[in-house]
């Protein structure tokens, strides 16, 4: 049984084909440059399947990153995967894009912190630790103000591996807050891999977890109520820039 995995939730576009019973990655394609995923995703799938001498009829399951990340990117992947799932009658599995990235730190002795920039000094992130062959959340993924986030990580008092291409934007503040405890991924470790997405979804398949339903939708990561209220307060004119005209 073969699974086709796709991830377009960040600047990275990744696709992979896995053999589920044999637990093998048959092929993988990753780019990390252009954000034209909507134009390239289908031709790239076609290309990879062609290189592997496979047809869509050889694929029995699908996997997709559910987010968080780029809203536009997430929608492209989720819409494509859902459409294929519905049209071909294939089960669709999904996994968090942060968990997928955290997998690159599986061998790290400490906690792993995948991170995407959410703008306005906030990040999408979670704290992960190893459990068998998977990474599980120690502090749940969330969208959070970066300084508050680093406070929480500092309290763990463990080496923390930060992963993701956006980490460099926060490297200074991370080093200042965590000092020697802070570690940083290599360029290759900073790239989420569709093969990791596939392996995580393979795990769900192997454990007979039910696939997604027709109402499956992206996980943009909801703002906390506190943050939503804070934004509302800002909107009520306390530091408002809007001019009444």
């Amino acid at each position: 049984m073969k699974m086709l995995a796709m991830d377009t939730s960040t600047l990275v576009m990744g696709i992979a084909v896995l053999h589920l019973e044999e637990k093998r990655v048959l092929g993988e394609l990753t780019t990390n440059l252009h954000k034209n995923h909507s134009v390239r995703l289908m031709p790239a799938l076609d290309q990879l399947l062609g290189d592997l001498e496979l047809n869509m009829s050889d694929i029995q399951a699908l996997a997709v990153s559910a987010g968080p990340g780029s809203y536009t990117g997430i929608r492209i992947g989720v819409t494509t995967a859902k459409t294929m799932s519905w049209a071909l009658g294939l089960p669709l599995y999904s996994e968090s894009s942060l968990t997928v990235l955290a997998m690159n730190g599986l061998r790290f002795d400490g906690v792993v912190v995948p991170l995407f920039d959410a703008r306005r000094r906030r990040v999408y992130s979670g704290v992960y630790r190893r459990e068998g062959e998977r990474m599980v959340e120690q502090i749940p993924q969330q969208v959070v103000e970066v300084d508050l986030w680093l406070e929480q990580i500092a309290e763990l008092n463990q080496p923390a591996l930060f992963l993701g291409d956006d980490v460099v934007r926060f490297e200074e503040v991370i080093r200042r807050r965590l000092g020697e405890k802070a570690r940083f991924g290599t360029a290759a470790e900073n790239i989420p891999r569709a093969s990791q997405l596939g392996m995580l979804c393979r795990h769900k398949w192997a454990n007979h977890e039910p696939p997604e339903h027709a109402d499956f939708s992206p996980n943009y990561l909801q703002m906390t109520e506190a943050e939503a209220n804070w934004i509302k307060k800002q909107g009520n004119g306390e530091t408002s820039h809007a001019q009444k005209s």
Partner: peptide, 25 residues
Amino acid sequence: DSPEEELGLEEYFYGEGICLVEWAS
């Protein structure tokens, strides 16, 4: 209706183009 609606407008604001926003307040 509210700024926290999950539209992802920030991707445009911090993107590579020019944004012209009506009813921006």
